[in-house]
Design a protein around this nucleic acid. Structure first.
Lengths: 200, 200
DNA sequence: ACCTGAACACCGTTCAAGT
DNA sequence: ACCTGAACACCGTTCAAGT
C-alpha cells in the first residue's frame, strides 16, 4: 500500500490509515505511529487525517479493532480444530506466544487500553477468549474445573508478563515448554485437601 | 518537598528532581512526568533541569535507580526473615503484588527499559532477585530444583502480566491465592515420567 | 556554580479556504 | 466530499546571558 497506489485510487479511506498505522506499529514500534509520519507515507497533509478521524486516540482505537479482529479469528480457528488433542491445542497456543513480531503490538495496545475504554474492551474480549480456550483444554486433560480455572489464569497472565518483560530472567527453552505442560496437566493433591471427594 | 522548602535551601540537587518525579509517577501516572510540569512544581525554569540532567532519558534512568533501590531493599529484608516459613514468605510476596500504587511505576519502568539499556539492567536486577527468592521458597517446600525453577518463572511472569493486564479477566480472590500456593507446592508426576527415579 | 529567558524543532489539533 | 495551508499550543532541547 504505497502512496502511489493510493493516489491512483483517489480518496483515502479510514482503513487505509489504519492499515498503514498497523504496519508501522509492527515494523518500527509504537514510536513510529505518528500523524505526521503517516501523512508523509500516504502523501497527504494532516488535515486529511482529521477528516477521517476525530483525533489520535480514535486512530488507536481503530488499530486495536483491526488487530483484535485478526487475532480473534486466529484463536477461533484454533478452537475449531477438535481433531487436535487438547494437549496439542495447548502447545500450539503457547508456541504462538513466541512470535516476537506481535509483541510490540500487544504492548502498545495494552498501554493505550489504560487511557481508552474502548481499546480496553476490545483487548479484554481477546483475553477472555484465550482464557476460555486454555481453561477448556486443561479441563479436557482431566483437571477439575476449579483447578483448571486457576491454571488457565496463571498461564494467561504469565503470557502477558512474558511479552512485557525484557527480563534477562530466563527465556524458556523447548524442554521447559514440555515441563510447563506437564505441570499444568498435573493433578496434585491440595494442601488443605478440601477439593477432592473422600475416596470411599 | 514543596517549592517553598527547596527555595529556602538554595540549589536543587539531582535527587530533588528525581524524588519529585517519582512522586508524580506514583500519584498521577506516567503522563505527569514532564519537564515543564516538574519545573512548575519546583519553581524553576527548564534551563535548571538541563543543568542537572543531560535529557529526559537521563531523569528516567535516575527514577528507575531510586525505585529499584527501594524495592530491592524491601525484598532483601524479606529474605532475611528466615523465621518465616517458606509458605508464609511466598504468601507475603504474592500479597505485596496487590499494592496498586506501585503498578503504574512498574509499568512505566518496563516501558522505559525497552529504549534504555541502563533502565533495563536496573529492572532486570530486581526481577532476578524476586525470581531467586521465589524459587528458593518453593524448593524449601519440598519441590525438586528443576521444577521449582519452572514454577518460579511462571509466577514471576504471571506477576508482571497481572500488573500489565487491565484484563477484565479475573481478579483473583483470597481463596484463589491459597489455591495458587497449593498448586505451586504440589509435586505432580510428570507426563513422560522422566523426572523421577524408578520406585525400586 | 546555578539559573533565567528566549529561541527553536517537533508533533497534535483547528479551521478557513480551495477543488 | 475531500484535502491544502497556515496557524496555534505544548513539550523537549539549546544556549547566550545573568548573578
Amino acid at each position: 500500500m504505497t502512496a502511489g497506489q493510493i493516489a491512483k485510487r483517489g480518496a483515502l479511506t479510514a482503513d487505509d490509515w489504519t492499515a498503514r498505522a498497523l504496519e508501522l506499529l509492527m515494523d518500527e514500534g509504537v514510536s513510529a505511529v505518528k500523524i505526521s509520519r503517516l501523512c508523509g507515507d500516504l502523501g497527504v497533509t494532516k488535515g486529511s487525517f482529521y477528516w477521517r478521524f476525530e483525533d489520535l486516540a480514535s486512530l488507536k482505537e481503530s488499530i486495536a479493532a483491526k488487530w483484535c479482529g485478526d487475532s480473534t479469528q486466529m484463536l477461533a480457528g484454533l478452537a475449531e480444530l477438535t481433531t487436535l488433542e487438547p494437549w496439542d491445542r495447548l502447545r500450539t497456543m503457547t508456541v504462538a506466544l513466541v512470535d516476537e513480531r506481535a509483541w510490540s503490538v500487544q504492548r502498545a495496545l495494552r498501554e493505550w487500553a489504560r487511557t481508552d475504554e474502548r481499546v480496553a474492551a476490545t483487548i479484554a474480549e481477546g483475553d477472555v477468549l484465550a482464557f476460555d480456550l486454555i481453561r477448556r483444554a486443561i479441563e479436557e486433560l482431566g483437571v477439575s474445573a476449579r483447578r483448571a480455572r486457576l491454571r488457565a489464569g496463571l498461564l494467561v497472565y504469565a503470557g502477558i508478563g512474558f511479552v512485557h518483560g525484557p527480563s534477562a530472567l530466563f527465556r524458556p527453552a523447548i524442554g521447559d515448554l514440555d515441563d510447563l505442560m506437564d505441570f499444568l496437566a498435573g493433578d496434585a493433591p491440595t494442601h488443605a485437601g478440601v477439593d477432592q471427594p473422600p475416596a470411599t
